[in-house]
């Protein structure tokens, strides 16, 4: 039920390699192009951020592991364009042959870029679901960590935090539920909390008795402890 992207706590990845402070923002020109093409295509309005995250996550484990970061982006974008009906497989096979597209009037124009990037896409929404938890309250995460609406679907409860006991640290308001939104099932907004877990609740051999990990978790991921 988990997917390859859910790697928090995993062993075996080796050391982190910090980069010099003056390292370029984009290591290669195609990295910058991959980011820009992805953002511009997103502006066509045919998917939301949860759908696009899920498109990267459902790359096959082999692809996800061997692809570099922006290879994941560009490959998931190709999949998403076909899945959402913007392009056909034939378009991908014959990239030079394309004519004007019905969505062309939605194209992001250079003069609109600054405004679009500066407005972003807030995830808070009004919700009728009452807050079940207060700051300081003990909660237990659901187990297994899984999308309860779509089998194998997108969720934001990492496997390492499933079935763990924590306490509510902050109440963030009501936010779009990715488990629903990633599958075009609606925003389904519900309360979102920052929940703090003692490291010893998550790991067999925590580094320090007072360490904590905080995760942002939706109300449907939680029950009272």
């Amino acid at each position: 039920m988990t997917r390859v992207h859910d790697m928090g706590g995993r062993f075996g990845d080796g050391a982190v390699t910090p980069e010099p402070v003056d390292a370029p923002v984009f290591q290669h020109d195609w990295h910058a192009r991959a980011l820009a093409v992805t953002l511009a295509a997103g502006s066509l309005g045919q998917w939301n951020i949860d759908i696009s995250r899920h498109a990267r996550e459902k790359l096959s484990p082999k692809d996800y592991t061997r692809f570099s970061y922006y290879e994941k982006w560009i490959s998931a974008l190709a999949d998403l364009l076909v899945e959402s009906g913007v392009l056909t497989e034939n378009d991908l096979k014959n990239v030079e042959e394309a004519g004007e597209h019905p969505l062309a009037d939605r194209k992001l124009k250079a003069e609109a870029v600054a405004k679009v990037l500066a407005s972003g896409g807030p995830a808070d929404r009004p919700s009728d679901i009452p807050f079940a938890f207060d700051v300081g309250q003990a909660v237990l995460t659901t187990r297994p960590a899984a999308n309860r609406l779509v089998d194998g679907g997108h969720t934001r409860l990492p496997a390492y935090a499933a079935g763990a006991k924590g306490r509510v640290l902050m109440v963030h308001g009501t936010h779009v539920l990715p488990d629903s939104s990633a599958h075009r099932l609606g925003d389904a907004p519900e309360p979102l909390y920052a929940v703090a877990f003692p490291a010893a609740e998550l790991w067999a051999d925590p580094e320090h008795p007072k360490d904590e990990v905080v995760l942002d978790l939706w109300q449907s991921y939680l029950e009272p402890a």
Partner: peptide, 23 residues
């Protein structure tokens, strides 16, 4: 990346000037 950029530009779905602006 180039192939996908090409097909999207040919179909009028992305504007090369907008890509430059984002970058």
């Amino acid at each position: 990346v180039r192939a996908l950029e090409t097909v999207l530009i040919r179909k009028g779905l992305i504007d090369p000037a907008a890509l430059d602006e984002i970058i």
